[in-house]
Computed example of a mutant assay.
Amino acid sequence: MNALDYFNARLEATVSPMDYLRLAQVEPERYFLIDVRNGPEHVRSLTIKDAYIIPQQELQERLHEIPKDKEIIVYCWDVWCNTAAKVAAFLLERGYKVKELTGGIAAWKEMDFPVSNSLNVNPSDNCGC
């Protein structure tokens, strides 16, 4: 693989936080963002706003929750974490269209983009109506 092929493949498989934010604002119904980080809930309580939380370790049992008609964007901790890449490969093998959010939650927070804290959410506030 030459350098051009490498960079084209990288661009095909990833999306930057800035690009994802812009794209999701224009066509929010096109994307399905998943936080795939593993670990105790208290250390992963801060998530990207509107992300679905499906840890990698639960993916097999929760695959039915992921729509096949949307572009799936997965993220994990940061550039050193490869959990999102593992999930992306798993989903691609099953026919999903997937990209990894580069830099994970760390890059998102660094850009001061919208986040949610799942520990501050009171389940009784969500009546489902």
Rank of each mutant, 00 (worst) to 15 (best):
L4S: 15
D5M: 12
Y6G: 07
F7R: 10
F7P: 06
F7H: 14
N8R: 11
N8H: 10
N8Q: 14
N8S: 13
A9R: 13
R10D: 12
R10N: 12
R10A: 13
L11R: 15
L11D: 12
E12D: 12
A13F: 03
A13V: 03
S16P: 09
P17C: 07
M18W: 11
M18N: 15
D19W: 01
D19A: 12
D19P: 11
D19C: 07
L21H: 06
R22D: 11
Q25M: 11
Q25P: 07
Q25T: 11
V26F: 12
E27I: 01
E27N: 09
P28T: 04
P28N: 05
E29V: 02
R30D: 02
Y31R: 05
Y31K: 06
Y31G: 03
F32W: 11
L33N: 02
L33Q: 01
I34V: 08
D35T: 00
V36Q: 01
V36G: 00
V36H: 00
V36M: 00
N38S: 08
N38P: 07
N38F: 06
G39N: 01
G39P: 00
P40V: 07
P40W: 03
P40G: 07
E41L: 10
H42A: 09
R44A: 08
L46F: 08
I48F: 02
I48W: 03
D50L: 08
D50N: 13
Y52L: 14
Y52G: 14
Y52V: 15
I54V: 06
P55G: 00
P55V: 05
Q57I: 06
Q57N: 15
L59Y: 01
L59V: 02
L59K: 04
L59D: 06
E61F: 13
E61Y: 14
E61I: 04
R62E: 11
R62F: 00
H64E: 10
E65M: 10
I66V: 09
P67M: 01
K68G: 08
D69F: 05
D69C: 00
K70R: 11
I72F: 00
I72S: 09
I72K: 03
I73Q: 04
V74G: 03
W77L: 13
W77S: 07
D78H: 10
D78W: 10
C81F: 02
C81D: 10
A84W: 10
A84C: 03
A85R: 15
K86E: 09
V87Q: 06
F90S: 03
R94S: 02
G95P: 06
Y96Q: 08
Y96A: 09
V98W: 00
V98E: 00
K99M: 05
K99W: 02
K99T: 07
L101M: 05
T102L: 12
G104E: 03
G104V: 09
I105C: 02
I105K: 02
A106V: 13
W108H: 02
W108A: 01
K109Y: 05
E110Q: 14
E110N: 14
P114S: 05
P114V: 01
V115C: 07
V115D: 01
S116Q: 13
N117D: 07
N117P: 04
S118E: 15
L119Y: 02
N120M: 06
V121A: 13
V121G: 10
N122F: 04
S124V: 04
S124T: 05
N126G: 12
N126W: 14
N126F: 15
N126C: 13
C127P: 11
C127N: 15
C127W: 14
C129Q: 07
C129M: 06
C129T: 12
